[in-house]
Amino acid sequence: MASHTQDQYFVPDSSVYPFLCSIALFCIAMGGASYLNGYSWGPNLMTAGLLAMAVMLFIWFRTVILESPDYNMDVDKSFRMGMAWFIFSEVMFFAAFFGALYYIRMLAIPWLADTEILWPGFEATWPSAGPLGAELLAKGTPDTTAIAEGTKYSLVDPWHLPLYNTLILLASSVTLTIAHHALRANNRKQLIIWLAITVALGVWFLFLQAEEYIEAYNHLGLTLGTGVYGSTFFMLTGFHGFHVTLGAFILFVVLLRCMRGHFTPERHFVFEAGAWYWHFVDTVWVGLFIFVYVL
């Protein structure tokens, strides 16, 4: 059926994608929960769900791309607003983890140190793996009175990989902006070059981040299970890394589309959405660099 009920509005056809995507989501969620509880079919269900989701989203977005010549500026504006509010929701998600970091560091650890009857000898410092630390916890040591004098782990030095990563991401924001200007000026070649550089920088960031993780696990003794320091460190940087992956993927797709000649200097919602997302990811990293690594 036709989508336009009248000239100004665009209403898409009925579509089965949302329903199928929901089934895929069900498989991912149910598979994941089963996986965590040791059901052998869990991983299979989850993988099937992820694949189905990927395929569905691919088809869905393809449809949207094919339709896009039909969209008027109102639809474009709706998309933009939608993206902006989605990014706001992401900001709030990270806020929860930053809030947790603040609370643990500024309030919980000092309180724990105050309760001397329970944890004699524990002192409030940051970073901290807590009164029992990770090793003892992991071993499930029976002797809860044995207080680790700080479990053996070292920190990631902020002035090496994290600093490089900061510079890389900041640079990538600049290159992305240059690409955007090129798009506005309808300079295809520049656009593709700078966008490609941006994606490359993103990948490089991920590569260094992976290296940092390997280093932390293998040499520093810093793991997800290193008490609350390990928890906040890996969850914050991990979710960020996940978002960088997503952002880089989006930009990569945008790059492919640019190479195919999509987008015009006036109409390039997806480019801008990807760019906003990338800047958001970049900003979060600056927060991470300051609050997780440096301070």
């Binding site: 919980a108 724990l112 793996a129 807590g130 029992l132 916890l137 997800l224 609350v228 969850m235």
Partner: peptide, 17 residues
């Protein structure tokens, strides 16, 4: 993650609350 991946957000022994 506290349940399955060894984090300690809510576990005082690991410094959580």
């Amino acid at each position: 993650t506290d349940r399955h991946f060894g984090t300690a957000f809510f576990n005082p022994a690991g410094g959580g609350d």
